[in-house]
Simulated assay, not measured.
Amino acid sequence: MFRTSLLATALALAGVASPVLAAPADAEAPPTVILVHGAFADGSSWNKVIATLQAWHVPAIAVQNPLSSLEDDVAATRRAIAAAPGKVVLVGHSWGGTVITEAGDDPKVQSLVYVAAFAPDRGQSSAQQGEGFPVGPGLSRLQEKDGYLWLPADAVAEDFAPDLMKKTAALLYSTQVPLKASALGEAVTTAAWRNKPSWYVISRDDRMLSPQLQAATARRIGAQVQSLGASHVSLLSRPAQVADTILEAAGVKPAELPLAEQGG
């Protein structure tokens, strides 16, 4: 009987997933920040930013993208948007910028934040957006196997995350998620930044996505800009500054909220 009841409960939840996960929204509550990681990373790359946002009582969720296709990553992001109780600030790093450009065309999304990220236009792919700009040194060191791209350890340390401690860069290498190469050629069908207020965090020392491309992208989408002297992974090397931009996009002024006690 216990097993039958458990199965029935599971089936019931499956049929009403969104209402169960999405609690009623509090009109006074800050929006939920949904963080979309890029290639060669996973949701844990946002851990430091999440800790800062939560310290200001701003809910934050990291999406775990399979990095198997644009469609798959957009689907994962849309599930997170549907589960949020109210308005959403959608944040994308690197490849994640392409994902939020497609997934951000949702009435729950109030604003977009791009962190050293792609932001293609309608009908354009990430690869096409990069045409005409310098190729980052790290991209020339990509390895491919079975259609997936990944970074060797020395490229992670020297190009992907040169401003992190060596042991942290080694951990990033060991936990990286390869990207399906064909995803870079998949075009978005919509460009959410055309209809949503946008912010852009430029990494001036980026060796993966050229700073020139980032600056041009920020201008093209009409974003409010923060420029950091950081590598491609500013979300790990400069998390407080990245979080400041996200709070601004969320309409939250840190001075107006009490800083939560931070545990170890």
Rank of each mutant, 00 (worst) to 15 (best):
K166N: 09
I61M: 11
A161M: 12
F160M: 09
S69I: 06
W95Q: 02
I81Y: 01
A60N: 04
A51H: 09
K145D: 15
T98M: 05
Y148A: 10
K167F: 11
K48M: 13
S94H: 03
S94Q: 03
I61Q: 10
V135F: 06
H57Q: 14
V63W: 09
R78L: 10
D73E: 07
P162L: 14
G138S: 09
G147N: 15
K166W: 05
T77P: 01
D163M: 11
G96K: 00
D163S: 10
V74M: 07
V109Y: 04
H93K: 01
A55I: 02
K108R: 14
A157G: 00
G92W: 00
E158F: 01
P107W: 15
A117D: 07
F160H: 01
P162Q: 13
P134N: 13
G136K: 04
P66A: 15
A82N: 11
P59T: 12
K145V: 15
Q64H: 13
L112D: 06
V49I: 14
D154P: 00
A161Y: 09
I100H: 00
L90P: 01
T52M: 06
P85K: 05
S126G: 07
E158K: 10
L90S: 01
G130M: 14
V88F: 02
G104C: 07
D105V: 08
P120Y: 06
W56P: 03
A82D: 15
H57S: 15
G138F: 01
S125F: 13
A116H: 04
E71V: 11
V58R: 01
W95C: 02
Q64C: 08
Q143C: 10
P59K: 06
P107I: 12
D105I: 03
D73S: 09
Q110K: 10
